[in-house]
């Protein structure tokens, strides 16, 4: 289970580092976020939701059946725009309104 961090996109705001419940995210010499022990990630997606530039993305470990897709998120008011990027680069956006309860 882990996340990937896009160093080019990362603006070094520290938002992900602040929320990681495992304190796994650190700043590199340029102030960009990186994960020292990817295998220690729980996959909670706290960092993904905290990232303002969609530089943090969740992926499913190969051992857990992962196929190389990634999940990032962008917040717009009450709306969370989840973006699934499939292995071939195509993507899909799923918008969740935090003002609506689950239907299940």
């Amino acid at each position: 289970m882990s996340i990937s961090l896009d160093a080019e996109a990362c603006v070094g705001c520290g938002g992900c580092m602040a929320v990681c419940p495992g304190m796994l995210l650190e700043a590199d010499a340029k102030g960009k976020a990186f994960i020292r022990h990817p295998e220690d990630c729980w996959g909670c997606a706290a960092c993904v939701k905290a990232c303002p530039v969609e530089a943090a993305a969740l992926y499913l470990a190969a051992e857990a059946g992962g196929r190389g897709g990634k999940l990032s998120a962008r917040k717009e008011g009450a709306l969370l725009h989840w973006k699934v990027t499939r292995p071939d680069g195509a993507s899909e956006t799923i918008i969740v309104n935090s003002q609506n309860a689950n239907s299940y």
Binding site: M1, G43, A45, V48, L58, Y59, L60, G65, G66, R67, G68, G69, K70, L71, L80, W82, V84, R86, P87, D88, A90, E92, I94, V96, N102, S103, Y104
Partner: peptide
């Protein structure tokens, strides 16, 4: 709606469905 419910508690499952669906 089910996928959204999973995004709210375990986003990996929603990702897994999407990966497979697209596969």
């Amino acid at each position: 709606a089910l996928r959204k419910a999973y995004l709210n508690m375990c986003p990996l499952q929603a990702l897994s469905w999407s990966e497979k669906k697209f596969a």
